[in-house]
Design a protein around this nucleic acid. Structure first.
Length: 254
DNA sequence: AATGTCGTCAACCGCCAAGTA
DNA sequence: ATACTTGGCGGTTGACGACAT
């Protein structure tokens, strides 16, 4: 059975959105909220497909979109996050408030990709391949990397994050304080656990208590982007940069 | 001034995972 | 358990403006 198209596409407008269309969509979403995108065109009276409406809203019309050039700090963060996460633009965008995945993807493809150079792009590809098969890390490299760190892999538990960088206790405490401080300042109540493997049982208990569900453990996995950048509220730029400063050596595998 | 080339970015496409009936 | 729907994602395309020839 073939794929059902998201809409008939017949008699629909395509290409750039007009100011009037934008106005209609914004007005509709203000009244009815986001979601049910398939129904939006008909209800709002737009000759667009639902997917197109969703994209237009998310990438352009949302009130919290940040306009203007990417700052130097943002650029640095994008580069570092890309090193960690590869082409997972939505995750990267999630760490840059007001920026969209499309914007960051475009920025990478048009600006940063060139700045960093083809050598790094190749490196990126290799890293992506590694991440895509992250469970299948080859044994040698696993042994090499796995001297004193363990990452606990969680189920998809909302707002839970654990990072186990290989750093000194003093550094660890500092990270922990910064992350917690920053996170709770935002009042989102997320659990952000940073520790070394000897903390894992304690953290596990804490996570389970907070999430009311059991965690599955995958020992020996040194890097798991689902844990590192899971479904949690973003830290502010400063806190994330601090975390990366501490963690980057550990994250660098080569 | 006309034409070609390049860079940017909004929009589209197809796939996938999660949710729902 | 299964089929179907929906939303989200990353890759790609194409329109358009800027610049070069």
């Amino acid at each position: 059975m073939g794929r059902r198209p998201c809409c008939s596409k017949e008699g629909l407008n395509r290409g750039a959105w007009t100011a009037i269309e934008d106005k209609i969509l914004v007005s509709y979403i203000k009244t009815h909220g986001e979601g049910k995108w398939r129904d939006v065109p008909q209800r709002a009276g737009l000759k667009r497909c639902g997917k197109s409406c969703r994209l237009r809203w998310l990438n352009y019309l949302r009130p919290d979109i940040k306009r203007g050039n990417i700052s130097h700090e943002e650029e640095e963060l994008i580069i570092r996050l890309h090193k960690l996460l590869g082409n997972r633009w939505s995750l990267i965008a999630g760490r840059l408030p007001g920026r969209t995945d499309n914007e960051i993807k475009n920025y990478w493809n048009t600006t940063l990709g060139k700045k960093i150079g083809p050598g790094s792009m190749q490196e990126d590809q290799t890293e992506n391949q590694t991440r895509q098969g992250l469970v299948a890390l080859d044994q040698n490299s696993t042994q090499q990397r796995n001297t004193d760190s363990t990452v606990v892999r969680t189920k998809a538990i909302r707002c839970t994050k654990m990072v186990f960088p290989r750093v000194s206790c003093a550094q660890l405490n500092e990270i922990d304080n910064q992350v917690h401080e920053s996170d709770y300042k935002q009042g989102n109540g997320d659990l952000v656990a940073v520790g070394s493997d000897h903390d894992s049982e304690e953290i596990r208990g804490c996570v389970e208590a907070n999430s009311n569900s059991e965690l599955s453990f995958d020992e020996q996995i040194l890097f798991d982007q689902e844990v590192l950048m899971g479904d949690w509220m973003p830290l502010d730029l400063k806190a994330l940069t601090s975390l990366l400063d501490f963690g980057e050596d550990w994250f660098n595998w080569t």
